[in-house]
């Protein structure tokens, strides 16, 4: 994939954009964003372990279901087959490779 980008850097059409890896923090996204967790890392080791214990682990699927009314916080997410509520502050420890809207299933 990175090879393709190196070969044709100037002609990034809609199709190739879809192939670019859309990495981001769970805390920065809005309702409907979904993807696969690639990294869980908090400066506070305790928080990292708590997130892991609740199932926020590399490889798990996440999707933002709802946001709170005030400051769009906290968020309710679907995490594999369960649902979890957490604040965006804690969600900032979760890095996700988001499914791109244009990507084929």
């Amino acid at each position: 994939m990175s090879e393709a980008l190196v070969l044709e850097p100037a002609v990034a059409t809609a199709d190739t954009v879809a192939d670019i890896i859309d990495l981001g923090l769970l805390s920065a996204r809005r309702i409907g964003a979904r993807g696969t967790i690639v990294r869980v890392h908090a400066p506070d080791d305790e928080l990292e372990r708590r997130l892991l214990e609740l199932g926020f682990v590399e490889g798990a699927r996440v999707e933002i279901l709802q946001e709170g009314l005030f400051g769009r916080d906290p968020i309710a997410v679907k995490l594999d087959d369960m649902r979890v509520a957490l604040r965006r502050r804690e969600a900032a420890a979760i890095q996700v490779r988001f499914d791109h809207a244009g990507a084929s299933a």
Partner: peptide
């Protein structure tokens, strides 16, 4: 405390 809970 961080706010994190399962929505059963």
């Amino acid at each position: 405390e961080p706010f994190m809970m399962e929505l059963p």
